[in-house]
Amino acid sequence: MTTRVLELDGVDVSFGFGSRRKHVLHDVGLTLDEGRTLGLVGESGSGKSTLAKVVVGLVRPAAGRILIDGEDMAGAGRERIARLRRRIQLIPQDPYASLNPRMTVGDALAEAIDPLRGRAEAHRDTIAALLAKVSMDADAADRYPHAFSGGQRQRIAIARALAVGPEVIVADEVTSALDCSVQAEVLGVLRDLRASMRLTMLFISHDLAVVRHVSDEVAVMSGGRIVEHEQRDRIFASPQHDYTKLLLASVPDGKPLRERRGTAVSK
């Protein structure tokens, strides 16, 4: 029997008022069990990033329940929310914006370990262990973020999320700002962590190919709704919803879009 770590039920979100009011999420329901990774795919404007913000508590839903380990976040008071929030950690999209340029990597990680008083010196060993988990050397702790490449920064961001020991990690488009080879590097780290730490993860991406390689199950969003939620292999093998089919059909798979007129490479 697995534990249900995260459950969303009937979540509605809208922005703006009056005639400008825009529904971003409609009656969204999701469940996530311990040790599983749910891939959330959708195109721009489908509401997937808003959903990520709702899950981590940056956006308050107008209606619906968000249960973390069975505890409702929507009804919780400030203190409880702060405590619940730490159990869900976000890895943001842009590794160049997600690390404070004025803080060393060690300080950033120390702050994740102890947000009230954290200092790098006090947590040296823990920080080294965290960096090792994302295949980085301990002396990275003394450097500032600018010393690292996009892929390395993203690994630091992962280490920071792990530092809290969260129940759920929300990864919001973590590889979409990266080059292909660097993307593979970050995906590799996530893959290893999933295996070694039984990570529970909500992996959000617009890239179906990436989602396929990270997820156990996949949910497809469109127009603020979840239109399909299935085990990974089933959704890729036999998509049910028209929109899922369209998405899958649109991914360039390298097959020619038309019949070629056999042009040969110059000899």
Binding site: G57, L58, I88, Q89, L90, P92, N100, P115, A157
Partner: peptide, 21 residues
């Protein structure tokens, strides 16, 4: 910026947020 919202998610209190970030 992302690093501020991340720090908030980590539970960094407002004054420390102001001072450090």
């Amino acid at each position: 910026r992302d690093f501020v919202s991340t720090a908030r998610l980590l539970g960094v209190p407002p004054l420390r947020l102001l001072r450090r970030h």
